[in-house]
């Protein structure tokens, strides 16, 4: 659909774009970036604590890493259920979205939200509405990488 400018206005598309660009506030880049750095760094630091803890139980590095990821997913999921994750994320931005806490939040928030539409047709089938893209594109990437490596290298 082509844009349609009201005939009574002298306004041109270009002028409109200039006006909106001038008036629309830009996000506070530096502030947001610092908050994301600190909050994301903190999550990873907590993750490292957990990882060292699991390693001290005698888990291998891979096992400790998996256990850490699962624990962090549990925390993200629980905070979503308690209704505080979205409040934290409104402040932290990418700081909570980029670590697996964001993955957990996308799964749990969708499951929670569509619970009212049924256990099967809502909660279960809608769980991956947000996180599905991450899994699909990750799998496709891994598939392509695997094919290239095993056929050509």
């Amino acid at each position: 659909m082509a844009p349609r400018i009201p005939s009574r206005l002298k306004l041109t598309q270009q002028e409109f774009d200039q006006i909106t660009q001038k008036i629309t506030p830009r996000p506070p880049l530096a502030r947001n970036a610092v908050i994301a750095f600190l909050s994301g760094g903190l999550i990873c630091l907590i993750g490292q604590l957990l990882q060292n803890l699991y390693a001290s139980f005698g888990y291998s590095t891979q096992e400790a890493s998996s256990a850490t990821v699962s624990t962090v997913i549990f925390i993200g999921s629980l905070l979503t259920g308690l209704g505080v994750f979205d409040q934290i994320a409104r402040f932290a931005g990418a700081g909570t979205a980029v670590p697996v806490t964001g993955f957990a939040n996308s799964l749990t928030s969708a499951a929670l939200e569509f619970k009212k539409e049924g256990l099967v047709t809502g909660l279960s089938s809608k769980m991956f509405t947000l996180a599905g893209s991450v899994i699909v594109l990750g799998v496709v990437t891994a598939f392509v990488a695997g094919i290239i490596k095993s056929l050509f290298l």
């Binding site: 830009r26 996000p27 880049l29 947001n32 970036a33 610092v34 908050i35 994301a36 750095f37 600190l38 909050s39 994301g40 760094g41 903190l42 999550i43 990873c44 630091l45 993750g47 490292q48 604590l49 060292n52 931005g93 990418a94 700081g95 979205a97 980029v98 670590p99």
Partner: peptide, 21 residues
């Protein structure tokens, strides 16, 4: 290892925030 975890994890998130914004 806590420092490197904090800094590298933080940088990932910083990059994410810049892409968001």
């Amino acid at each position: 290892d806590y420092l490197t975890a904090f800094v590298v994890g933080g940088l990932f998130c910083l990059l994410g925030q810049l892409l968001f914004d």
